[in-house]
């Protein structure tokens, strides 16, 4: 295990420069640069906020940042999974020439996705400071561990997606369907309390993704520390996914080249 981590660290310059290249290629194609990747979630937030703040009876100034956090979180999850499906094929030319640890290819995907996520979170912070002032700043400290959890979660998703796609080509399509269903089962566009009022609270209680959203929204938007049981749920889900990813790596890493 520590030897494996060391081998990932040893080729850090390689995967770091690939992440840099991915980001550069993405922004090079657009005039707006960084703003381009923010345009989609912000436009979606604007549209959804106009409609659903009325439907759910929410204050638009509360609802918009919450929506933006939800959409960006979701974007991170889908990008990690869907780009994760392709990451081994994307790195195939290197895999065929150099025996580097396979974990770096999903890592490349997730670090790219994390960058976009972080930029979006900065926008959320600006919104929060301008709408709600500077109360509850200390609770922002909890975001550090939360982001680590998200990074591990994204990497695990990418590993699992990558190795299953290498065996079955339709995993990308199936995961798109699955993610679409999960999107509506997660309190992204609707506030959590709306479900609880209508007796659908169990949907949130049994959905671990809701706990990550709680961990993000409470400190970012309300200035509160997250609830303990939510932290525990998020941690346990992350550990579970990470274990699944590491088992997959341990079992399949050496032989995956025969599937590419």
């Amino acid at each position: 295990m520590s030897r494996y981590l060391k081998s990932i660290w040893k080729c850090r310059y390689f995967w770091i420069s690939l992440v840099q290249m991915d980001l550069r290629n993405r922004y090079r194609r657009s005039l707006l640069g960084l703003g381009w990747s923010l345009l989609h979630p912000i436009a979606m937030t604007a549209v959804l906020c106009t409609v659903f703040s009325k439907v759910f009876g929410q204050d638009p100034f509360e609802y918009a940042p919450s929506l933006l956090v939800g959409l960006c979180f979701w974007n991170f999850i889908t990008t990690s999974t869907k780009d994760g499906c392709q990451c081994l094929f994307q790195g195939e030319k290197y895999i065929r020439q150099f025996p580097a640890p396979m974990a770096i290819y999903p890592l490349r995907t997730v670090l790219g996705a994390s960058f976009h996520f972080l930029v979006a979170m900065l926008v959320v912070l600006v919104l929060r400071f301008s709408f709600k002032g500077f109360g509850g700043l200390a609770s922002l400290l909890s975001l550090g561990p939360t982001l680590m959890l998200l990074l591990v979660l994204g990497w695990s998703l990418a590993v699992l997606a990558a190795f299953s796609t290498a065996h079955f080509p339709d995993v990308l399509h199936l995961s798109e369907v699955g993610l679409q269903i999960l999107f509506y089962a997660t309190p992204i566009i609707y506030p959590a309390n709306v479900l609880q009022q209508r007796g659908l609270g169990w949907l949130i209680d049994y959905n671990p993704l809701a706990s990550y959203l709680h961990l993000l929204r409470e400190p970012l938007l309300a200035g509160h520390w997250p609830e303990f049981n939510m932290i525990l749920t998020a941690e346990m889900s992350t550990v579970f996914m990470a274990c699944a990813a590491m088992l997959t790596l341990a079992r399949c890493e050496k032989r995956i080249i025969f599937q590419l």
Binding site: K10, C11, Y13, F14, M21, F98
Partner: peptide, 11 residues
Amino acid sequence: AYRGYLQGETP
């Protein structure tokens, strides 16, 4: 640079 790093070079 990419190939060099993969061969174990550092910046």
